[in-house]
Design a protein around this nucleic acid. Structure first.
Lengths: 159, 159
DNA sequence: TGGGTTATCATGGGATTTTATGGGAGTCAA
DNA sequence: TTGACTCCCATAAAATCCCATGATAACCCA
């Protein structure tokens, strides 16, 4: 598999360890190494995560921006200084940094949600409400997605 | 064959396994790998399914959008976090996630209905009533399809 | 054309493997 | 020492593999 899909809830144990879901690990390992990059989401109370290719994409888009040096630096600093590279052990577990736990309001359980190029980690009940809101927005914006996802209005090629 | 056609009812066994109809499997394998992508339909109480090409289309349209936009995350969450990639075993069976079973109201039997680029999975009796409605709408809108599909009284886009 | 033989397929169930998770023991630094 | 972090092993539950069966469909040949 090469994109992050589906969602699961895993436990954070007494030592602060969490298992990265096995399907996510196989995506990560396809990208090059047995670990994750995590940083606090800019837009929500969750943690964004991904592998080599996510980090490369972000680095590239920062380079491409035609900004004054200071602004680019500020963005890069904001992003990278809060980004952690965590290698998981042979059981597939990492221990989360305090600041990320805080940002997402995590206690003893965490929802891993695959969203394609990256995944997010949420406090489970917070994720539930976000998901419901997302579904509503997606329905409103379904034209953006394109004709291929036949998720359409009057549809019906059916029979 | 490269599109999904016709419909069959298969059993969900005690372990929660279902056989993907063999004709569907051959479509899927033509697309690259021995598995399905499943997600809850946005518009009905059913499960949408397809192969590589369906998921690639979805992924591409989302990639085209901007990386940090809030809307993009919401859209990607709505689509991907509820999408499951299930590789079927050598008998052609998958086990369905709880949340999909719930969404479609499945118990011990499921109707697979081919609708071209993708297929749907329905609780059998729910599918029956949906099919009847669809046929009425399809007849009303048959001009939309174009002259090439001669989709006359005895219908059948099939074959 | 009809009848019998072969494949193919959906399904049941036992055996094996994977996965998430708990906890012990070792390492290193303050 | 104490705490943070590994590495390693144990376990239970879930997913997957593998084999057997019956039913149906496809095939073949007189």
């Amino acid at each position: 598999m090469n994109i992050f899909l589906s969602n699961t809830i895993n436990k954070i144990d007494a030592k602060g360890r969490v298992s990265i879901p096995s399907q996510f690990r196989s995506v990560l390992e396809n990208q090059g190494f047995a670990g994750v990059y995590l940083y606090p989401s800019f837009t929500s109370q969750s943690i964004d995560g991904g592998g080599e290719s996510l980090i490369n994409q972000i680095a590239q888009s920062i380079e491409k921006m035609q900004l004054f040096a200071e602004e680019t630096d500020a963005l890069a600093t904001a992003l990278f200084s809060e980004t952690y590279q965590l290698n998981y052990d042979q059981d597939g577990r990492v221990s989360l940094p305090e600041s990320l736990m805080m940002h997402a309001g995590l206690k003893d359980r965490v929802t891993f949600a695959g969203i394609g190029q990256k995944f997010q980690m949420w406090e489970p009940s917070a994720f539930e409400s976000f998901k419901n809101d997302s579904r509503v927005k997606a329905l409103q914006n379904r034209d953006l997605i394109g004709p291929s996802v036949n998720f359409s209005k009057n549809n019906k090629v059916e029979e």
